[in-house]
Each structure stands twice: as structure tokens, then as C-alpha cells.
Amino acid sequence: MPSPATPLQNDLTGEIAAQALWIRRRSFQMVYEAQQGHPGGDFSAADILATLYFGVMRYDAKKPRDPGRDRFVMSKGHCTGAFYAVLARAGYFPEADLSTYMEPLSKLNGHPNRNYLPGVETNTGPLGHGLPVATGIAIAGQLDKADFRTFVLTGDGELQEGSNWESALTAAHRKLENLTLIVDRNRLQQGARTEDTASLDPLDDKWRAFGWHVETVDGHDHAQLFDVLSASPKGRGKPLCVIANTFKGKGVSFMHDNVSWHHGVPSKEQYELAMQELV
């Protein structure tokens, strides 16, 4: 028997899909105009960000420091195209500001700065900082018996940084069920595939061995993402790691799974071609 929530969820995934498309288009326009950025990783993360901000997280963009807010930490801080687009769309700042991306004196730096923009919890850019900071946020919530949740998005290459595994130990040790890590598992890092550089597989087993609850999903399937991210973590006694299988450059044929789009920027022709596909 279909649950009463099902029709709502269908509308919701439709809404999330529309937002994800908007994020891809707007972020690509930002990268095109700035002639800088990391569009491949913007695209692999777009569906995850849309699901979090338009389905899962509780926040009031007009009260960005509300102590009860769910927290989101963008550990893969190089993907500001998608991150700024989702923050603007969620109402943290005017969408018009997006066109200042990386201009002199812009608040929209190449990497997010919490002193410039509401909605940014911590300054990132150097990889391997988000999970440790998110662990601290989650410990604060645990100490206060607060019921906000803390979400953190890392790249997969990023997991080669040892700091992630140090905080993985701490988070499991402290049973931080209020902490959710999402790994953007696009299998590409800056210069090559993760498995040709410093392999991560079997990644799920690693997180399990570190004491985490692990879910693996299609990171471009909004319903799957919504289900694992919105399920209550209460009583689990473990932090949650969601391995989101994604593709770098997802959404544009010539960028799909192509490492040169890690920080590649489009020519006019490529930009127009991509925009024709992103509909």
C-alpha cells in the first residue's frame, strides 16, 4: 500500500530535480563568465546539494546563525559554483550576487568564506578540513542534547587526506548519530582516477570498519538521496556515511566522467552546447 507520503515525495523529487538543473545551469554560467572554477565537481555534487537544501535540511535562510539550524559543511570547497548557486537559491543572498563570482572584492571568492557570506559554516578550500570541523559541530550538538543535524560533503580524492580518518575515529567513538558524511564518489580527483592514484575501494568497508553506518546510493537519484538523508538517525548510535556514486561533469555529454573538467573552463561554443543539453 502506498504510504500517504508518497505523492508528496513525488512532488518533492520533481522540485529537487528542477533545483538541481538550475544549479547546474547557473554554476556553469558563473564558471564561464569568470573563466575559472571547478565545473566537473559542481555537476557531480548538484543533485546532492539540491536534495539537502530543498528536501532534507531544516533552516531559515533569513536566520543563518539560528542555533537550532541543521548545519551543512562544504568540505570540497573548490566547488563554489554549485555551492554558491544553491545558497543563493535557498535565499541566503540575492541571486544577482552570483554574477560577481571571483571578481575583485567579491564576496564570492573561489573558496567559501563565512565572513563574507551567510550560510557558510566554515572556510574551506584545503581538502580534509570539513569532516573534522563537522565532527566538532556535532559534538557541540550532542553536548547540548540539541536535535539539529550536521551534514558534510567531501570529495572522494579528498578522503586520501588523513585528517578525515582521524575524525572518523572520533565521530564513531563518540557515537555521533547526528553527523552525516556524504562522499561525492565520482572516482576522479584532480589529475586522474582515484583508483589509479591512491585507491579507496572498498570504501564502504573502510567506513564500516571505522564504526560508521554506511549507505550507498546513486548520487544523481533524488529519491534515493532523499530517503537515506531524511531518515531519522535517532537511536542508531553511529555516524552515517552516504557513499553517493556520481559522475564528474554529470549532465553534459562531453564533460561526463572526464577528468579534464576538474578545473576546465568552457569556450563560448562549449558553453552554448552545454546549455543546450542542460534542459
Partner: peptide, 8 residues
């Protein structure tokens, strides 16, 4: 790294 900011 200019626009990529002080982290870089």
C-alpha cells in the same frame, strides 16, 4: 592562485 583566495 589569485581568485582562489587565501587558502590557496
Amino acid at each position: 592562485y589569485g581568485e582562489l583566495g587565501p587558502t590557496h
